[in-house]
Design a binder for these strands. Sequence first.
DNA 1: CTATATTCTTAACCCAAGTTAAGATCGTCA
DNA 2: TGACGATCTTAACTTGGGTTAAGAATATAG
Lengths: 195, 195
Amino acid sequence: MTETQVLNYALNQFAGIDAAAFELSAPYWQRKTYGKGEFYNEYKNVCKYLGFILDGVFRTYYIDDESAEEKNVFFFSKNQVVVAYKSFVTQTPCSYYTESMTESTVLYIHINHLTELYGKSHHWERFGRLVAETAFNLAMNRAEEFMFRTPEQRYLELIRNHPDIFNNVPLYHIASYLGIQAPSLSRIRKRMVGK
Amino acid sequence: MTETQVLNYALNQFAGIDAAAFELSAPYWQRKTYGKGEFYNEYKNVCKYLGFILDGVFRTYYIDDESAEEKNVFFFSKNQVVVAYKSFVTQTPCSYYTESMTESTVLYIHINHLTELYGKSHHWERFGRLVAETAFNLAMNRAEEFMFRTPEQRYLELIRNHPDIFNNVPLYHIASYLGIQAPSLSRIRKRMVGK
DNA sequence: CTATATTCTTAACCCAAGTTAAGATCGTCA
DNA sequence: TGACGATCTTAACTTGGGTTAAGAATATAG
């Protein structure tokens, strides 16, 4: 299966993009590989591309002014869209950094081309709406994790729902994602051995 | 100014809905008043209406299975849209309760009518997109408050950004919204007197 | 204006996460 | 294999929120 076929299949699964609709977009997709630590988009940059991850893991993080600490906000992995959503849809500077945590491969499309596709086919409009809903769900899930769950519950849910991330990311990055310090995660893990 | 004019003006401000586009929607808007404690939408119900608050304050809350506690998720007040967004766009049962905290007046429209309007005018499509973006921003802001701010910082930002809510809602509801218990909020307030 | 309910604060104690620094473990590559 | 860097755990101590229950302040209604 070629990379283009992988993309076509994934877009079909995600938003019912059929062969004809995909054909419209074909000239616009570009391919890029990222080294470990390379940025997909940086703080204060406007995110101009929507990416589809063929392989690899990305993280979006915030740098706290006061503590100067990095706080992980989202992880994105294989067969998912990677984008700084708010920056992308409003074309305003981003508050976050999004970097590759591994060697990664991405197919990406420019916002102008995507906007063009919206006008050409309701399949692509549907895609746009589904990306918006996905972004909302991602943000809302994150809010709910913090509002309703303890760090220990968040840790267990991460393992259950995102084993791919848990297995490919150092624990100190996991801790940051869970909103706690590395020693706290160690204590949680130790506590849980008894259970 | 009639209530309809208020609505027209607000929709124009929010999404550039002009007189002609508003005219299309006019037959669909209905009016309802809510007593204190009355529900806009309940847990397990599908949210079928998008509301515009002419007057009053609503809260959306979650009931924690374990603690059986109510946890406030969002407040909605005058001149804002009130809706259980995820339930509304996916037409699936809601995880939350949304209730009126005061005597309130709402103009609301059924999802089927709104969908109809999407097809009739790009102004309404634009409105739909902006509601989606608003919902995303609301959820993302909430996630960011919990990921990056302390309870004290969240308290100060609530006062600064939403004085209308701060001034019209009992402190124990504020505490719940901030993700802490009432005694903790009291301690925070006490600490701050010195500053 | 008092009685009553609601809301807010306080106190005492507990517990989990933060902080800092040291040391253990793991991986990797020369 | 052995040494270095990266990652993970542990310890000791601090800090702030949770919990419970009591009491103070504030609204509201009769």
